[in-house]
Design a protein around this nucleic acid. Structure first.
Length: 893
RNA sequence: GGGCUCAUAGCUCAGUUGGUUAGAGCGUUGCGUUGACAUCGCAAAGGCCAGAGGUUCAAGUCCUCUUGGGCCCACCA
């Protein structure tokens, strides 16, 4: 067989096998009634995206699930794609053309959109290539983009459907205070304007009374410039301080507007002065007050955040400049009472992090309550399960308090709102999937489409079914069959911050348009953070680039390390050193495989049937390693099914390294050409590679191919990934519990420790005497003398009938035997005694504790019998050990 | 203000419905390279499981509170 190079070269293997998989179309899935489907839709990264650790984690998890179920015989489909990411992409392209000195307004809408498409053609597949580097086994033939023609049609269809929903349309227009980003110059939904803590000031302003300008009402605000848009002052009706002023008028400073003092229970008497300035066009609360009390709504801002013509001399000033100016002018007039430092939290644009301005404008909204209802039910009834479970509560809490969704955006890149207005007859807006030619009422052809585009998430929420080409013009098409087969999808894998944006809305869309859940399970993984717990971000400069790690350590190392430190749903704290573990593991696998391949006789190891463990004459060690392998496999299955990826990965790691390599291979080394050793060694390596393949796809394929060269295994698949997930041999699992196995490995372990204590080199043979406590033990040791000799590198093993203590020995107690290692050196008796004493004390304490328990009548009555029995057995065994150790102790003199 | 989450070895973290003597990786220390592997091997040291109560025959694990981190949501200007 081929000899492998001394070190594993990830780069070569990764490129080679990824190409191979793609060429053989092994990622492609199709409708196959003979198989159960297993479907995942990728959370589509932004077309502007560059692979970061969050993506790496997210996609590794999906790939593990997909590869696992594919190998288990499901028709596994992982649909990839990208999101057009309206605002984000527009920003990127705007920056790009800015280098040419052009603004988008210079180009005009159509030309600008053309430029975005050009940009998308050129750079939009960057992230796709990067996902391939990671090893993602997506069905690339099905790659979708949220602005594909087919997809766009789905978006329009959905809009029209909600518009015309009975009994009342769910889409409406309203002029209200929304989140406005002055930099992106668009409205944002509440989710797109996350609150951040800010260190600001609370400014106390004096508003003079009209009847007596020397008397003031003092109001407090964090945004003093908004006073220019004040149309009332509000106090709590119960507030005795202000009772006499309710209904009176104050003169708004600087603009000299007369505004009323109103009362409303919304006002918190205990905050600041208890009197609040009301700016209905620039504060969500004030907006409510404005509606309730019929106040005037005065907009004081241009869309870019400068003050507008309603602000007299402040017109044209940026909002922050205006704040300074207003404060200066108030101070000059003696109307600034005081300034206090004040911590507040305010919305920030999730795309550019600019401070959000509450801003009244005409926007389109989706009424959410009717959509939320079935989506809440689906989760409450357990049709959709969150993992870890705690996210269920977060989801339900948000859904039950859901607010209407602002879906119109004042940007150019995106799905244009499919609404048309007649310029001639002022007819109501017409919602239509196909571009209408004329006004349905007056037949005028002078119609125009709404200028705004839809929120990006208004297209993302259709992802699980729109990717299949929904809605279908004709029934019974291939696409329709595919949707029927692959939908609902199996599991959605994403990060917590996406629950509201996307997960919740997909559930609503699924229930509304498919009348079915979009997926049955949602796995929420943690956020990737740096070693100090900070979120990784470009601006903090604490990014660890996955591509750099792939380059340096290999994709398998990246994947394995990430997974092994990601316990279910906990955040991941990363440092670069972490990836050494994965690299080292890959190298270990490589070298162990190299050793096996070097020693594998192709004829003897040709067939290693899965029921190998039943064969007569296998030998204890072979039976033991098979037993261990199958119980690890059992664990891997269980953990993968429970989304405990780290535990599955770590079980494989520990087994391979510390049982298969450290013990098994070392043990069989002297007799490696033995027929059964050959067969078992090959079987375990092969099936281990299969079980590890979802985690480390490249190296497992590389070695599997060498282990299964074409022509050797006929009728078998040509790739590990389309191979079979090893079947657990349940009966083999229990072999490990057999007395014989336990005894042998106990003895070997003890001898190893003794050898180590006197620092015997591996090549130095030793003489050991063993005294078994029982006849059965005697028989086991007698039968396995050769084995023990080999394993422990002995040149002589004496089996004692009487426990006569030989001279010059190191001694220890193992499972049912006393072990004496003879050696010619001097023993530090005092040290030996100290050690034994410590151990004896430990055991004594242990026994005392157990005896207390066993004497306890409640324990005997209430604990399950097997636990009681275990305790009793354990006392007996410990007592036995204790006696022997004490004897050894005294024998030392 | 509401909710979630974390505190276990020097460091970073596992520990599934409560059940023998609490684990891993890294780091440290000792020994070991012509023999698959120095990106290595074999071993050792290292823990009042944050603190205080409670439930239980039995608590790192369940409950309550305290302390100290982190996160999310919320209209205190």
């Amino acid at each position: 067989m081929d000899e492998l190079s001394k070190q594993y070269n990830p780069k070569e293997a990764e490129d080679k096998w990824y190409k191979f998989w793609e060429e053989k179309q092994l990622f492609h899935a199709r409708v196959n009634p003979a198989k159960k489907p297993f479907t995942i839709v990728i959370p589509p990264p932004n077309v502007t995206g560059i692979l970061h650790m969050g993506h790496a984690l997210n996609n590794t998890i999906q790939d593990i699930l997909i590869r696992y179920h594919r190998m288990k015989g499901r028709e596994a489909l992982w649909v990839p794609g990208t999101d057009h990411a309206g605002i984000a992409t527009q920003n990127v392209v705007e920056k790009a053309i800015a280098k040419e000195g052009i603004r988008r307004q210079d180009l005009g809408r159509e030309k600008f959109i053309e430029r975005v498409w050009q940009w998308k053609e050129q750079y939009g597949s960057t992230i796709i290539h990067q996902l391939k580097k990671l090893g993602s086994s997506c069905d690339w033939q099905r790659t979708r983009f949220t602005m594909d023609d087919e997809y766009s049609r789905a978006v329009k269809e959905v809009f029209v459907s909600l518009w015309g929903r009975k009994p009342a349309g769910l889409i409406y227009q309203d002029n209200k205070v929304i989140n406005w980003c002055p930099r992106c110059q668009t409205a944002l939904s509440d989710e797109e304007a996350p609150h951040q803590e800010l260190q600001g000031n609370l400014y106390y302003l004096r508003y003079p009374l009209k009847i007596n300008p020397d008397e003031y009402v003092i109001v407090a605000t964090t945004r003093p410039e908004t006073m220019l848009g004040d149309t009332a002052v509000a106090v709590n009706p119960k507030d005795k301080r202000y009772k006499h002023l309710i209904g009176k008028t104050v003169i708004l400073p600087l603009v000299d507007r007369e505004i009323k003092i109103i009362s409303d229970s919304m006002v918190d008497m205990d905050f600041a002065t208890g009197a609040v300035k009301v700016t209905p066009a620039h504060d969500p609360n004030d907006y409510v007050l404005g509606k309730k009390h019929n106040l005037e709504f005065i907009n004081i801002l241009y869309p870019d955040g400068r003050l507008n013509e309603n602000t007299l001399g402040y017109k044209g000033m940026d909002r922050f400049k205006a704040r300074e100016a207003v404060l200066g002018d108030l101070k000059e007039k003696g109307l600034l009472e005081k300034v206090e430092p004040h911590q507040l939290s305010a919305g920030h644009c999730y795309r550019c992090h600019t401070l959000i301005e509450p801003y009244m404008s005409r926007q389109w909204f989706v009424r959410m309550k009717p959509l939320a209802k079935p989506a809440i039910e689906a989760v409450k009834k357990g049709k959709i399960k969150f993992h870890p479970r705690r996210w269920t509560k977060v989801y339900l809490n948000w859904m039950e308090n859901i607010q209407d969704w602002c879906i119109s955006r004042q940007v150019w890149w995106g799905h244009r709102i499919p609404l048309w207005y007649c310029c001639d007859c002022n007819n109501l807006a017409l919602a239509s999937v196909d571009n209408p030619k004329q006004c349905p009422a007056c037949k005028s052809s002078n119609i125009k489409q709404d200028e705004d585009v839809l929120d990006t998430w208004f297209s993302s929420w259709l992802w699980p079914f729109a990717i299949f080409g929904w809605p279908f013009k004709d029934q019974g098409t291939r696409q329709q069959k595919e949707l029927d087969y692959f939908y609902p999808t199996s599991v959605l894998v994403t990060a917590p911050e996406i629950i509201f944006f996307w997960v919740a809305r997909m559930i609503m869309a699924g229930m509304e348009f498919m009348k079915d859940i979009p997926f049955s399970d949602v796995y929420i993984h943690g956020t990737v953070r740096d070693i100090e717990g900070k979120k990784m971000s470009k601006s903090l400069g604490n990014i660890i680039d996955p591509l750099e790690i792939i380059n340096e350590y290999g994709a398998d190392a990246l994947r394995f390390s990430l997974i092994s430190i990601t316990s279910q749903g906990q955040d991941v704290f990363l440092s670069k050193e972490r990836f050494e573990q994965g690299r080292n593991f890959a190298n270990k696998i490589w070298n162990a495989s190299r050793f096996i391949l070097m020693n594998l006789d192709p004829v003897q190891a040709k067939d290693s049937p899965s029921d190998l463990y039943k064969r007569q004459g296998l030998g204890t060690v072979n039976r033991w390693i098979l037993s261990r392998f199958y119980s690890v496999l059992l664990e891997v299955n269980k953990n993968l099914d429970a989304y405990k990826f780290n535990e599955a990965a770590n079980a494989l790691y520990a087994f391979f390294w510390h049982e298969f390599c450290d013990w098994y291979l070392e043990i069989i080394k002297p007799d490696i050409k033995n027929l059964f050793n050959q067969k078992v060694m090959r079987l375990v390596l092969n099936d281990f590679l299969c079980a590890l393949h979802p985690f480390m796809p490249f190296i497992t394929e590389e070695i599997w191919q060498k282990l299964n060269p074409p022509g050797l295994a006929q009728g078998e698949p040509a790739s590990i990934m389309s191979g079979h997930w090893p079947e657990i041999q349940k009966k083999a699992v229990d072999i490990n519990l057999e007395k014989e196995v336990q005894c042998i490995f106990g003895v070997i372990n003890v001898i190893r420790n003794l050898r180590n204590e006197i620092e015997l080199k591996p090549e130095q043979k030793a003489e050991v005497s063993i005294y078994p406590h029982s006849k059965a033990g005697f028989k086991i040791i007698e039968e396995q003398t050769v084995l023990i000799q080999n394993l422990s590198r002995l040149n002589r093993l004496n089996l004692l009938k009487d426990n006569l203590r030989p001279e010059a020995v190191k001694s220890a107690v193992a499972e049912g035997v006393d072990v004496y290692l003879h050696f010619s050196g001097l023993i530090d008796v005092r040290k030996e005694k100290e050690k034994l004493e410590a151990r004896i004390n430990e055991i004594k304490i242990n026994i005392a504790g157990k005896q207390g328990r066993v004497k306890n009548r409640d324990f005997l009555k209430k604990a399950p019998p097997d636990v009681v029995q275990k305790e009793k057995d354990s006392i007996e065994a410990l007592g036995d050990s204790l006696k022997r150790m004490e004897k050894m102790y005294y024998e030392l003199g």
